Amino acid sequence: MAAGGDHGSPDSYRSPLASRYASPEMCFVFSDRYKFRTWRQLWLWLAEAEQTLGLPITDEQIQEMKSNLENIDFKMAAEEEKRLRHDVMAHVHTFGHCCPKAAGIIHLGATSCYVGDNTDLIILRNALDLLLPKLARVISRLADFAKERASLPTLGFTHFQPAQLTTVGKRCCLWIQDLCMDLQNLKRVRDDLRFRGVKGTTGTQASFLQLFEGDDHKVEQLDKMVTEKAGFKRAFIITGQTYTRKVDIEVLSVLASLGASVHKICTDIRLLANLKEMEEPFEKQQIGSSAMPYKRNPMRSERCCSLARHLMTLVMDPLQTASVQWFERTLDDSANRRICLAEAFLTADTILNTLQNISEGLVVYPKVIERRIRQELPFMATENIIMAMVKAGGSRQDCHEKIRVLSQQAASVVKQEGGDNDLIERIQVDAYFSPIHSQLDHLLDPSSFTGRASQQVQRFLEEEVYPLLKPYESVMKVKAELCL
Protein backbone atom coordinates (compact mmCIF):
# COMPACT_ATOMS: atom_id res chain seq x y z
CA MET A 1 0.00 0.00 0.00
CA ALA A 2 1.38 3.40 -0.93
CA ALA A 3 2.48 5.77 1.82
CA GLY A 4 0.38 8.83 2.50
CA GLY A 5 -3.37 9.04 2.68
CA ASP A 6 -6.46 11.15 2.36
CA HIS A 7 -6.00 13.43 5.35
CA GLY A 8 -9.58 14.68 5.14
CA SER A 9 -10.97 11.16 5.47
CA PRO A 10 -12.12 9.64 8.78
CA ASP A 11 -10.23 6.53 7.69
CA SER A 12 -6.88 8.35 7.72
CA TYR A 13 -4.92 9.65 10.70
CA ARG A 14 -4.79 13.40 11.09
CA SER A 15 -2.81 15.22 13.76
CA PRO A 16 -5.06 16.31 16.65
CA LEU A 17 -3.07 19.54 16.73
CA ALA A 18 -4.63 20.48 13.40
CA SER A 19 -7.97 18.71 13.64
CA ARG A 20 -8.78 19.46 17.28
CA TYR A 21 -6.67 22.12 18.94
CA ALA A 22 -4.73 24.74 16.97
CA SER A 23 -6.25 27.88 15.47
CA PRO A 24 -7.21 28.06 11.77
CA GLU A 25 -4.71 30.86 11.18
CA MET A 26 -1.77 28.85 12.55
CA CYS A 27 -2.86 25.72 10.69
CA PHE A 28 -2.98 27.73 7.47
CA VAL A 29 0.58 29.02 7.89
CA PHE A 30 1.78 25.40 7.97
CA SER A 31 -0.56 24.19 5.22
CA ASP A 32 0.51 22.86 1.83
CA ARG A 33 -1.27 25.73 0.11
CA TYR A 34 0.67 28.34 2.05
CA LYS A 35 3.94 26.50 1.54
CA PHE A 36 3.68 25.92 -2.19
CA ARG A 37 2.19 29.33 -2.87
CA THR A 38 5.25 30.79 -1.12
CA TRP A 39 7.50 28.64 -3.32
CA ARG A 40 5.87 30.22 -6.37
CA GLN A 41 6.23 33.68 -4.85
CA LEU A 42 9.94 33.03 -4.31
CA TRP A 43 10.34 31.92 -7.92
CA LEU A 44 8.59 35.11 -9.02
CA TRP A 45 10.80 37.31 -6.83
CA LEU A 46 13.90 35.57 -8.19
CA ALA A 47 12.77 36.08 -11.79
CA GLU A 48 11.89 39.74 -11.17
CA ALA A 49 15.29 40.42 -9.61
CA GLU A 50 17.13 38.52 -12.35
CA GLN A 51 15.25 40.51 -14.99
CA THR A 52 16.07 43.81 -13.26
CA LEU A 53 19.75 42.85 -13.22
CA GLY A 54 19.77 42.16 -16.95
CA LEU A 55 18.98 38.49 -17.53
CA PRO A 56 16.80 37.77 -20.62
CA ILE A 57 13.45 37.41 -18.84
CA THR A 58 10.43 39.09 -20.42
CA ASP A 59 7.60 41.07 -18.86
CA GLU A 60 5.23 38.52 -20.36
CA GLN A 61 6.94 35.70 -18.48
CA ILE A 62 6.82 37.68 -15.23
CA GLN A 63 3.13 38.44 -15.70
CA GLU A 64 2.35 34.81 -16.46
CA MET A 65 3.98 33.77 -13.19
CA LYS A 66 2.10 36.46 -11.25
CA SER A 67 -1.20 35.32 -12.72
CA ASN A 68 -0.69 31.73 -11.61
CA LEU A 69 0.58 32.09 -8.04
CA GLU A 70 -2.69 30.70 -6.68
CA ASN A 71 -3.37 28.27 -9.53
CA ILE A 72 -1.85 25.20 -7.89
CA ASP A 73 -2.79 21.77 -9.22
CA PHE A 74 -2.07 19.70 -6.12
CA LYS A 75 -3.04 16.45 -7.82
CA MET A 76 -0.56 17.04 -10.64
CA ALA A 77 2.15 17.99 -8.15
CA ALA A 78 1.58 14.78 -6.19
CA GLU A 79 1.77 12.70 -9.36
CA GLU A 80 4.95 14.48 -10.43
CA GLU A 81 6.54 13.93 -7.02
CA LYS A 82 5.63 10.24 -7.15
CA ARG A 83 7.31 10.03 -10.55
CA LEU A 84 10.37 12.18 -9.82
CA ARG A 85 10.86 11.45 -6.10
CA HIS A 86 11.63 15.16 -5.66
CA ASP A 87 9.11 17.61 -4.24
CA VAL A 88 10.73 20.81 -5.53
CA MET A 89 11.12 19.59 -9.11
CA ALA A 90 7.55 18.28 -8.99
CA HIS A 91 6.35 21.81 -8.27
CA VAL A 92 8.71 23.35 -10.83
CA HIS A 93 7.03 21.16 -13.45
CA THR A 94 3.53 21.88 -12.09
CA PHE A 95 4.13 25.65 -12.08
CA GLY A 96 5.65 25.42 -15.54
CA HIS A 97 2.61 23.55 -16.83
CA CYS A 98 0.35 26.53 -16.08
CA CYS A 99 3.08 29.02 -17.09
CA PRO A 100 4.32 27.58 -20.42
CA LYS A 101 6.00 30.81 -21.53
CA ALA A 102 7.84 31.18 -18.21
CA ALA A 103 8.59 27.48 -17.73
CA GLY A 104 12.16 27.80 -18.98
CA ILE A 105 13.19 30.49 -16.49
CA ILE A 106 11.46 29.18 -13.34
CA HIS A 107 14.05 28.27 -10.67
CA LEU A 108 16.84 29.75 -12.81
CA GLY A 109 20.19 29.29 -11.03
CA ALA A 110 18.52 28.13 -7.84
CA THR A 111 18.73 24.98 -5.74
CA SER A 112 15.92 23.26 -3.86
CA CYS A 113 16.81 25.03 -0.62
CA TYR A 114 16.20 28.37 -2.29
CA VAL A 115 12.48 27.68 -2.06
CA GLY A 116 12.55 25.14 0.78
CA ASP A 117 14.65 26.96 3.34
CA ASN A 118 13.54 30.47 2.48
CA THR A 119 9.92 29.38 2.75
CA ASP A 120 10.64 27.81 6.13
CA LEU A 121 12.13 31.09 7.34
CA ILE A 122 9.12 33.04 6.08
CA ILE A 123 6.84 30.56 7.84
CA LEU A 124 8.84 30.78 11.09
CA ARG A 125 8.65 34.57 10.98
CA ASN A 126 4.93 34.64 10.25
CA ALA A 127 4.17 31.97 12.84
CA LEU A 128 6.06 33.98 15.46
CA ASP A 129 4.04 37.02 14.40
CA LEU A 130 0.90 35.03 15.21
CA LEU A 131 2.16 33.92 18.62
CA LEU A 132 3.40 37.30 19.86
CA PRO A 133 0.00 39.05 20.17
CA LYS A 134 -1.55 35.90 21.63
CA LEU A 135 1.05 35.81 24.38
CA ALA A 136 0.64 39.55 24.92
CA ARG A 137 -3.10 39.06 25.41
CA VAL A 138 -2.51 36.34 28.00
CA ILE A 139 -0.18 38.67 29.89
CA SER A 140 -2.71 41.49 29.65
CA ARG A 141 -5.55 39.36 31.05
CA LEU A 142 -3.40 38.14 33.91
CA ALA A 143 -2.22 41.70 34.58
CA ASP A 144 -5.86 42.78 34.98
CA PHE A 145 -6.40 39.85 37.33
CA ALA A 146 -3.30 40.71 39.38
CA LYS A 147 -4.19 44.39 39.64
CA GLU A 148 -7.72 43.65 40.85
CA ARG A 149 -6.45 41.25 43.54
CA ALA A 150 -3.16 42.93 44.41
CA SER A 151 -4.14 43.30 48.08
CA LEU A 152 -6.14 40.08 48.61
CA PRO A 153 -4.16 38.06 51.19
CA THR A 154 -3.67 34.37 50.57
CA LEU A 155 -1.62 31.64 52.14
CA GLY A 156 1.75 31.22 50.48
CA PHE A 157 3.24 27.78 49.96
CA THR A 158 6.82 26.59 49.81
CA HIS A 159 7.31 22.84 49.26
CA PHE A 160 3.48 22.93 49.04
CA GLN A 161 3.49 23.48 52.79
CA PRO A 162 1.98 26.60 54.41
CA ALA A 163 4.42 29.50 54.47
CA GLN A 164 4.16 33.28 54.93
CA LEU A 165 1.17 35.06 53.46
CA THR A 166 1.32 36.65 50.03
CA THR A 167 -1.50 38.09 47.92
CA VAL A 168 -3.43 36.55 45.05
CA GLY A 169 -2.20 39.36 42.79
CA LYS A 170 1.44 38.93 43.81
CA ARG A 171 1.30 35.20 43.10
CA CYS A 172 -0.17 35.96 39.67
CA CYS A 173 2.76 38.31 39.03
CA LEU A 174 5.10 35.33 39.37
CA TRP A 175 3.28 33.84 36.39
CA ILE A 176 3.29 37.12 34.48
CA GLN A 177 7.02 37.63 35.00
CA ASP A 178 7.84 34.30 33.34
CA LEU A 179 5.52 35.07 30.44
CA CYS A 180 7.09 38.51 30.00
CA MET A 181 10.47 36.83 29.63
CA ASP A 182 8.92 34.53 27.03
CA LEU A 183 7.44 37.50 25.15
CA GLN A 184 10.82 39.23 25.06
CA ASN A 185 12.52 36.04 23.89
CA LEU A 186 9.93 35.41 21.17
CA LYS A 187 10.37 38.98 19.92
CA ARG A 188 14.15 38.66 20.01
CA VAL A 189 14.25 35.39 18.08
CA ARG A 190 11.75 36.78 15.57
CA ASP A 191 13.81 39.93 15.00
CA ASP A 192 17.03 37.90 14.77
CA LEU A 193 15.72 35.75 11.91
CA ARG A 194 17.76 36.13 8.74
CA PHE A 195 16.86 35.07 5.22
CA ARG A 196 18.83 32.27 3.56
CA GLY A 197 18.74 34.29 0.40
CA VAL A 198 20.10 33.37 -3.03
CA LYS A 199 23.11 31.13 -2.38
CA GLY A 200 23.18 28.16 -4.78
CA THR A 201 23.88 24.51 -4.12
CA THR A 202 26.63 24.72 -1.50
CA GLY A 203 26.24 28.34 -0.50
CA THR A 204 28.96 29.71 -2.80
CA GLN A 205 26.60 31.43 -5.28
CA ALA A 206 28.61 29.84 -8.11
CA SER A 207 25.59 29.32 -10.39
CA PHE A 208 24.56 32.96 -10.11
CA LEU A 209 28.11 34.16 -10.65
CA GLN A 210 28.06 32.19 -13.90
CA LEU A 211 24.66 33.60 -14.89
CA PHE A 212 25.98 37.13 -14.42
CA GLU A 213 29.27 36.35 -16.16
CA GLY A 214 31.46 36.86 -13.11
CA ASP A 215 29.83 40.10 -11.92
CA ASP A 216 30.14 39.91 -8.11
CA HIS A 217 28.12 43.08 -7.61
CA LYS A 218 25.10 41.74 -9.50
CA VAL A 219 25.16 38.51 -7.50
CA GLU A 220 25.17 40.50 -4.26
CA GLN A 221 22.42 42.75 -5.58
CA LEU A 222 20.33 39.71 -6.51
CA ASP A 223 20.66 38.34 -2.98
CA LYS A 224 19.78 41.72 -1.47
CA MET A 225 16.80 42.34 -3.76
CA VAL A 226 15.16 38.97 -3.09
CA THR A 227 15.81 39.33 0.64
CA GLU A 228 14.06 42.71 0.67
CA LYS A 229 11.15 41.41 -1.42
CA ALA A 230 10.65 38.70 1.21
CA GLY A 231 10.48 41.32 3.95
CA PHE A 232 13.75 40.50 5.70
CA LYS A 233 16.27 43.14 6.75
CA ARG A 234 19.26 40.89 6.12
CA ALA A 235 20.32 37.50 4.85
CA PHE A 236 23.02 35.12 5.98
CA ILE A 237 26.37 35.89 4.40
CA ILE A 238 27.50 32.32 5.02
CA THR A 239 25.40 29.21 4.35
CA GLY A 240 26.00 25.67 3.26
CA GLN A 241 23.26 24.27 1.11
CA THR A 242 20.87 25.17 3.94
CA TYR A 243 20.69 27.93 6.50
CA THR A 244 22.33 26.77 9.72
CA ARG A 245 20.03 24.49 11.67
CA LYS A 246 21.07 26.35 14.81
CA VAL A 247 18.25 28.73 13.88
CA ASP A 248 15.72 25.96 14.48
CA ILE A 249 17.32 25.30 17.87
CA GLU A 250 16.97 28.96 18.80
CA VAL A 251 13.32 29.12 17.79
CA LEU A 252 12.21 25.86 19.39
CA SER A 253 14.18 26.60 22.57
CA VAL A 254 12.12 29.74 23.07
CA LEU A 255 8.91 27.82 22.41
CA ALA A 256 9.97 25.08 24.83
CA SER A 257 10.67 27.72 27.46
CA LEU A 258 7.17 29.10 26.90
CA GLY A 259 5.87 25.57 27.42
CA ALA A 260 7.63 25.40 30.79
CA SER A 261 6.04 28.69 31.86
CA VAL A 262 2.55 27.59 30.87
CA HIS A 263 2.99 24.21 32.57
CA LYS A 264 3.95 25.89 35.85
CA ILE A 265 1.04 28.35 35.68
CA CYS A 266 -1.55 25.70 34.89
CA THR A 267 -0.17 23.35 37.54
CA ASP A 268 -0.63 26.12 40.11
CA ILE A 269 -4.20 26.66 38.92
CA ARG A 270 -4.89 22.92 39.19
CA LEU A 271 -3.55 22.82 42.75
CA LEU A 272 -5.58 25.89 43.70
CA ALA A 273 -8.66 24.23 42.20
CA ASN A 274 -8.10 21.27 44.50
CA LEU A 275 -7.88 23.70 47.44
CA LYS A 276 -11.10 25.31 46.15
CA GLU A 277 -9.46 28.74 46.21
CA MET A 278 -9.51 29.33 42.45
CA GLU A 279 -11.03 27.71 39.37
CA GLU A 280 -10.72 27.97 35.64
CA PRO A 281 -13.94 28.75 33.73
CA PHE A 282 -16.53 25.97 33.89
CA GLU A 283 -19.40 26.06 31.39
CA LYS A 284 -23.01 25.57 32.49
CA GLN A 285 -23.39 22.43 30.36
CA GLN A 286 -19.85 21.15 30.96
CA ILE A 287 -19.51 17.61 32.37
CA GLY A 288 -16.57 16.88 34.65
CA SER A 289 -17.00 13.12 34.89
CA SER A 290 -19.28 10.55 33.28
CA ALA A 291 -19.57 8.75 36.63
CA MET A 292 -19.26 11.56 39.20
CA PRO A 293 -21.66 14.42 38.35
CA TYR A 294 -20.29 16.71 41.08
CA LYS A 295 -16.83 16.87 39.52
CA ARG A 296 -15.41 20.20 38.30
CA ASN A 297 -12.18 19.07 36.70
CA PRO A 298 -9.64 21.72 35.58
CA MET A 299 -9.75 20.27 32.06
CA ARG A 300 -8.30 23.30 30.26
CA SER A 301 -5.34 23.59 32.60
CA GLU A 302 -4.76 19.86 32.29
CA ARG A 303 -4.79 20.18 28.50
CA CYS A 304 -2.23 22.98 28.69
CA CYS A 305 0.03 20.85 30.87
CA SER A 306 -0.34 17.86 28.58
CA LEU A 307 0.54 19.84 25.46
CA ALA A 308 3.25 21.88 27.19
CA ARG A 309 5.10 18.66 28.00
CA HIS A 310 5.02 17.78 24.31
CA LEU A 311 6.28 21.24 23.39
CA MET A 312 9.16 21.04 25.84
CA THR A 313 10.36 17.73 24.40
CA LEU A 314 10.37 18.94 20.78
CA VAL A 315 13.51 21.03 21.25
CA MET A 316 15.51 17.80 21.26
CA ASP A 317 14.76 17.33 17.55
CA PRO A 318 16.57 20.42 16.21
CA LEU A 319 19.42 19.87 18.67
CA GLN A 320 20.07 16.44 17.23
CA THR A 321 19.39 17.55 13.66
CA ALA A 322 21.96 20.35 13.82
CA SER A 323 24.53 17.94 15.21
CA VAL A 324 24.29 15.54 12.24
CA GLN A 325 24.49 18.05 9.39
CA TRP A 326 27.72 16.82 7.78
CA PHE A 327 29.74 19.39 5.86
CA GLU A 328 27.43 21.48 3.61
CA ARG A 329 24.32 19.40 4.52
CA THR A 330 22.78 15.97 4.72
CA LEU A 331 19.14 15.01 4.37
CA ASP A 332 18.95 13.95 8.02
CA ASP A 333 17.07 17.17 8.64
CA SER A 334 14.27 17.00 6.09
CA ALA A 335 11.70 14.52 7.40
CA ASN A 336 12.30 15.52 11.00
CA ARG A 337 11.82 19.23 10.34
CA ARG A 338 8.56 18.61 8.47
CA ILE A 339 7.20 17.32 11.78
CA CYS A 340 8.86 19.19 14.63
CA LEU A 341 8.65 22.77 13.34
CA ALA A 342 4.95 22.61 12.58
CA GLU A 343 4.12 20.68 15.74
CA ALA A 344 6.01 23.14 17.94
CA PHE A 345 4.10 26.13 16.62
CA LEU A 346 0.71 24.42 16.54
CA THR A 347 1.27 23.28 20.12
CA ALA A 348 2.39 26.72 21.30
CA ASP A 349 -0.60 28.25 19.53
CA THR A 350 -2.97 25.85 21.28
CA ILE A 351 -1.66 26.42 24.79
CA LEU A 352 -1.74 30.20 24.35
CA ASN A 353 -5.32 30.14 23.04
CA THR A 354 -6.32 27.90 25.94
CA LEU A 355 -4.46 29.91 28.58
CA GLN A 356 -6.04 33.13 27.32
CA ASN A 357 -9.45 31.50 27.66
CA ILE A 358 -8.58 30.41 31.20
CA SER A 359 -7.23 33.82 32.19
CA GLU A 360 -10.34 35.57 30.90
CA GLY A 361 -12.56 33.58 33.26
CA LEU A 362 -10.57 32.75 36.40
CA VAL A 363 -12.82 32.51 39.46
CA VAL A 364 -11.50 33.27 42.96
CA TYR A 365 -13.20 32.20 46.19
CA PRO A 366 -12.16 34.74 48.88
CA LYS A 367 -14.11 33.03 51.67
CA VAL A 368 -12.25 29.77 51.13
CA ILE A 369 -8.95 31.65 51.07
CA GLU A 370 -9.92 33.47 54.27
CA ARG A 371 -10.80 30.23 56.00
CA ARG A 372 -7.46 28.66 55.11
CA ILE A 373 -5.66 31.74 56.40
CA ARG A 374 -7.57 31.46 59.69
CA GLN A 375 -6.43 27.85 59.99
CA GLU A 376 -2.74 28.73 59.66
CA LEU A 377 -2.40 32.36 60.71
CA PRO A 378 -2.48 31.77 64.49
CA PHE A 379 0.75 29.78 64.28
CA MET A 380 2.33 32.43 62.05
CA ALA A 381 1.27 35.19 64.44
CA THR A 382 3.02 33.71 67.48
CA GLU A 383 6.18 35.77 66.99
CA ASN A 384 4.13 38.98 66.80
CA ILE A 385 2.25 37.95 69.94
CA ILE A 386 5.51 37.33 71.80
CA MET A 387 6.85 40.75 70.76
CA ALA A 388 3.62 42.44 71.90
CA MET A 389 3.84 40.71 75.29
CA VAL A 390 7.47 41.81 75.75
CA LYS A 391 6.45 45.40 74.95
CA ALA A 392 3.71 45.06 77.59
CA GLY A 393 6.33 44.08 80.21
CA GLY A 394 6.39 40.29 79.90
CA SER A 395 9.38 37.95 79.70
CA ARG A 396 10.22 36.65 76.24
CA GLN A 397 11.22 33.23 77.57
CA ASP A 398 8.11 32.84 79.74
CA CYS A 399 5.88 33.93 76.86
CA HIS A 400 7.65 31.61 74.43
CA GLU A 401 7.02 28.64 76.71
CA LYS A 402 3.36 29.56 77.18
CA ILE A 403 2.91 29.87 73.41
CA ARG A 404 4.73 26.59 72.81
CA VAL A 405 2.42 24.67 75.13
CA LEU A 406 -0.75 26.26 73.77
CA SER A 407 0.41 25.75 70.16
CA GLN A 408 1.00 22.05 70.74
CA GLN A 409 -2.46 21.72 72.27
CA ALA A 410 -4.06 23.53 69.32
CA ALA A 411 -2.09 21.41 66.83
CA SER A 412 -3.35 18.27 68.54
CA VAL A 413 -6.94 19.44 68.09
CA VAL A 414 -6.30 20.00 64.37
CA LYS A 415 -4.39 16.79 63.68
CA GLN A 416 -5.81 14.29 66.16
CA GLU A 417 -9.43 15.46 66.37
CA GLY A 418 -9.89 17.11 62.97
CA GLY A 419 -10.99 20.33 64.63
CA ASP A 420 -10.22 23.96 63.84
CA ASN A 421 -7.14 25.77 65.02
CA ASP A 422 -8.16 27.19 68.42
CA LEU A 423 -4.83 28.70 69.46
CA ILE A 424 -6.20 32.23 69.58
CA GLU A 425 -9.18 31.13 71.68
CA ARG A 426 -6.73 29.52 74.13
CA ILE A 427 -4.72 32.74 74.29
CA GLN A 428 -7.89 34.79 74.78
CA VAL A 429 -8.89 32.81 77.89
CA ASP A 430 -5.40 32.64 79.37
CA ALA A 431 -4.93 35.36 82.00
CA TYR A 432 -1.20 35.51 81.29
CA PHE A 433 -1.95 37.19 77.95
CA SER A 434 -4.51 39.67 79.32
CA PRO A 435 -2.20 42.68 78.69
CA ILE A 436 -2.55 42.13 74.91
CA HIS A 437 -6.06 40.68 74.59
CA SER A 438 -7.27 43.97 73.10
CA GLN A 439 -4.50 43.83 70.46
CA LEU A 440 -5.20 40.34 69.15
CA ASP A 441 -7.47 41.41 66.28
CA HIS A 442 -4.81 43.81 65.04
CA LEU A 443 -2.05 41.24 65.48
CA LEU A 444 -4.07 38.77 63.41
CA ASP A 445 -4.98 41.10 60.54
CA PRO A 446 -3.89 39.14 57.42
CA SER A 447 -2.93 42.32 55.56
CA SER A 448 -0.19 42.97 58.12
CA PHE A 449 1.48 39.70 57.06
CA THR A 450 1.70 40.35 53.30
CA GLY A 451 4.64 42.74 53.44
CA ARG A 452 5.00 44.91 50.33
CA ALA A 453 3.13 42.48 48.06
CA SER A 454 0.52 44.97 46.83
CA GLN A 455 3.13 47.68 46.23
CA GLN A 456 5.29 45.18 44.35
CA VAL A 457 2.35 44.30 42.11
CA GLN A 458 1.68 47.94 41.28
CA ARG A 459 5.32 48.72 40.56
CA PHE A 460 5.85 45.57 38.49
CA LEU A 461 2.81 46.23 36.32
CA GLU A 462 3.63 49.89 35.76
CA GLU A 463 7.38 49.56 35.18
CA GLU A 464 7.68 46.24 33.38
CA VAL A 465 4.40 44.83 32.13
CA TYR A 466 2.47 47.75 30.65
CA PRO A 467 5.46 49.12 28.66
CA LEU A 468 6.08 45.63 27.25
CA LEU A 469 2.45 45.34 26.12
CA LYS A 470 2.23 48.79 24.51
CA PRO A 471 3.14 47.62 20.95
CA TYR A 472 0.21 45.17 21.08
CA GLU A 473 -2.54 47.60 22.18
CA SER A 474 -4.39 47.34 18.87
CA VAL A 475 -4.94 43.56 19.19
CA MET A 476 -5.83 43.34 22.88
CA LYS A 477 -9.61 43.06 22.46
CA VAL A 478 -9.56 39.70 20.65
CA LYS A 479 -11.26 37.01 22.74
CA ALA A 480 -10.19 33.37 22.90
CA GLU A 481 -12.99 30.95 22.06
CA LEU A 482 -12.57 27.23 22.61
CA CYS A 483 -14.69 24.71 20.74
CA LEU A 484 -13.49 21.76 22.82
Results as ranks from 00 to 15, higher is better:
E250G: 13
Q356V: 05
N68D: 10
M312R: 05
L319N: 03
D117Y: 00
T227I: 05
V324H: 09
V198C: 15
K66M: 11
K276D: 08
H437A: 10
S67C: 12
L406H: 15
M76F: 07
V364Y: 04
Y243S: 15
P378L: 05
M299R: 04
D333S: 06
R337H: 03
C113Y: 00
K224M: 10
T94M: 13
N384Y: 07
H91E: 09
C266A: 11
F433I: 06
F195K: 00
S323N: 07
Q408M: 06
R20E: 00
K470N: 13
R194T: 06
E50I: 01
L307Q: 15
L469R: 03
P298W: 03
A77C: 10
A206G: 14
A103G: 10
N71V: 10
F95K: 05
S15R: 10
R20F: 06
C98L: 13
I358G: 04
S9C: 14
N357K: 03
S395G: 11
A127P: 00
P446I: 09
Q205C: 12
S359C: 10
R171S: 00
Q416V: 08
L69G: 06
E25T: 14
S412I: 15
L132C: 14
A431T: 14
R196S: 11
Q41D: 12
K415D: 07
M89A: 06
I62R: 04
H93Y: 07
L319H: 07
Q63K: 10
C305Q: 08
K246Q: 02
E80Y: 09
T202S: 13
E81N: 01
R194S: 08
Q241L: 05
M312T: 08
I351A: 11
L331N: 08
H400W: 03
R33E: 12
S438F: 11
K276A: 02
R190T: 11
A410G: 05
S289K: 07
S15N: 15
F433G: 04
T58M: 11
K224P: 05
N71R: 10
S9Q: 11
I72W: 14
Q51N: 06
T154R: 01
F36G: 13
Y472P: 07
V254W: 09
I249Q: 07
T154W: 07
H93R: 14
L130F: 10
I339R: 03
R337D: 02
E370F: 12
H159T: 00
R83V: 10
E250W: 05
S412L: 13
T52R: 10
K284S: 08
I269V: 10
L46S: 02
L258Y: 15
K284I: 09
S438C: 13
L307R: 01
P10W: 15
L130M: 13
E80K: 08
C98R: 11
T38S: 06
